[in-house]
């Protein structure tokens, strides 16, 4: 089964990406991705630019409504995601717990809907 590990970050952790903490920040994520690959469970993923780069788009009564900023203005923002392929939720949760964000802001695990073929 495929699961998405959604990585949530706060302003502080987003800032860590470019501050004097950046080595520790990226080092942790590199090691984590590496572990996923070596375990043979990595099925994709991406890191996202911080929320201030986001643009929300809605079509309201046929009119495009384009707005600066992320869709929901919450303290925790999506910072990226990993797609993993594991047998069950329990294994997915084990991997989620190892994600660097799990010990700072938090991660969310969601099963992917299977694609019809």
């Amino acid at each position: 089964m495929k699961y998405a590990i959604l990585v949530y970050e706060t302003e502080t952790t987003f800032a860590d990406r470019t501050s004097d903490q950046q080595e520790a920040y990226w080092g942790a994520y590199n090691a984590y991705s590496q572990a996923l690959v070596e375990a043979g469970v990595m099925a994709g993923g991406a890191a996202l630019h911080p929320p201030h780069t986001a643009t929300a788009v809605q079509l309201l009564e046929g009119q495009r409504k384009v707005q600066d900023g992320p869709f929901a203005d919450t303290k925790e923002q999506l910072g990226g995601f990993f797609i993993i392929d594991v047998p069950d939720l329990d294994t997915a949760l084990d991997w989620a717990a190892r994600c660097p964000a799990a010990s700072s802001c938090g991660v969310e695990v969601r099963p992917l809907l299977p694609m019809n073929d």
Partner: peptide, 10 residues
């Protein structure tokens, strides 16, 4: 069912 919880002992 949908989240795929393991049907085994922990």
């Amino acid at each position: 069912r949908d989240a795929g919880i393991r049907f085994e002992l922990p």
